[in-house]
């Protein structure tokens, strides 16, 4: 039997396999060079980039929780121009698709980021982090309001020459409403979930464990929530869905495909096992062979619901 076909496409971009790294968990890829073959990844989603550099939050920024972790990094990043001059040359060399995650305080920020990045050689897609506060709208996160989510999507799509993926926040009442709004706005795909807002307290000192008090929960602990949301969104929209949340191995990834994801992103697991993405690609391939499937397409949304 031939090797199964792992390719998937988002808009005009074709990915050699459906395993991508999640923003903020893979640095700018170079950090992982000792641990895996970067060219075997379907794609790399880099740390969220803003127009100007951001210093991030005061420490402590992370804390471990049961089967997960909370982070309040505060979107520390090198900023747009340094990203292009310092990080892109390496990213162009590694022979995999590069997706740049962007974040802003206003629609204009997002517009400028999209316009500038989509003309940079080697940027294959843009992922829009809409879990950020809209400064002009009193700091309500773009991603928690359907109209704002649609507006930011439209703004980015108007400026972007590469496919646009919108990354959804799970901290909403009905994620399918936001997903539909984003689809209307012109997104070529949605990715979900970003981290779940959480908190940890030290009972001895009676203080929060994070300086920011609250932070985003990630890791295996959030997988059931993520699977449920991916399943709901996949049934609500026509565009491809990228599943994210607690994926640590190929079996986890396959569950997301069954729920309707066309691709997956791996986040926190990179910290635990820096070679995990390679292992997941191989594991998916083995699963497809074992189940006599010709390609990943046969698995997407193939959940069997009896009754």
């Amino acid at each position: 039997m031939n090797r199964p076909d792992l390719r998937i496409s988002i808009g005009s971009t074709v990915f050699s396999n459906p395993v991508l790294t999640a923003s903020g968990t893979f640095g700018y890829a170079r950090e992982f060079e000792p641990y895996l073959n970067l060219h075997r990844l379907g794609g790399v989603v880099v740390k969220g980039i803003s127009l100007s550099p951001r210093k991030g939050n005061p420490p402590p920024r992370i804390v471990e929780t049961a089967c997960g972790m909370l982070n309040a990094i505060g979107l520390e990043n090198v900023g747009l121009e340094r990203f292009i001059s310092e990080k892109m040359p390496y990213l162009r060399e590694i022979g995999t698709k590069v997706i740049v995650n962007i974040l802003g305080d206003s629609l204009d920020d997002y517009r400028l980021l999209a316009a500038r990045l989509s003309e940079v050689e080697g940027v294959h897609a843009i992922e829009v982090n809409i879990s950020c506060p809209n400064v002009k709208k009193g700091g309500v996160a773009f991603g928690t309001d359907a109209a704002m989510a649609e507006a930011v999507t439209r703004a980015v799509c108007e400026e972007s020459g590469v496919p646009v993926i919108v990354k959804l926040s799970p901290n909403v009442t009905d994620i399918t409403l936001i997903a539909r709004a984003v689809e209307n706005g012109g997104a070529q795909a949605v990715s979900l979930i970003n981290t779940l807002l959480g908190m940890a307290i030290d009972s001895r000192s009676r203080r929060p464990k994070l300086a920011n008090i609250v932070g985003g929960l990630s890791g295996p602990a959030i997988k059931p929530v993520a699977l449920r949301m991916v399943w709901q969104v996949a049934r609500a929209v026509q565009i491809p869905v990228i599943g994210i949340g607690g994926i640590s191995n190929a079996t986890d990834a396959i569950e997301f495909f069954l729920a309707g994801a066309s691709a997956v992103q791996i986040g926190t697991a990179n910290f635990v096992n820096p070679g995990v993405c390679d292992e997941v690609v191989r594991g998916i391939e083995e699963y497809l062979v074992e189940h006599r499937l010709q390609g990943i397409q046969g698995l997407i949304g193939a959940l069997i619901v009896d009754c």
């Binding site: 903020g24 968990t25 893979f26 640095g27 950090e31 992982f32 740390k47 991030g56 939050n57 005061p58 420490p59 920024r61 992370i62 982070n71 990094i73 520390e76 990179n270 910290f271 820096p274």
Partner: peptide, 9 residues
């Protein structure tokens, strides 16, 4: 390995 930015001081 410099990927999470959690170890800031």
């Amino acid at each position: 390995i410099s990927a999470c930015l959690g170890c800031a001081i």
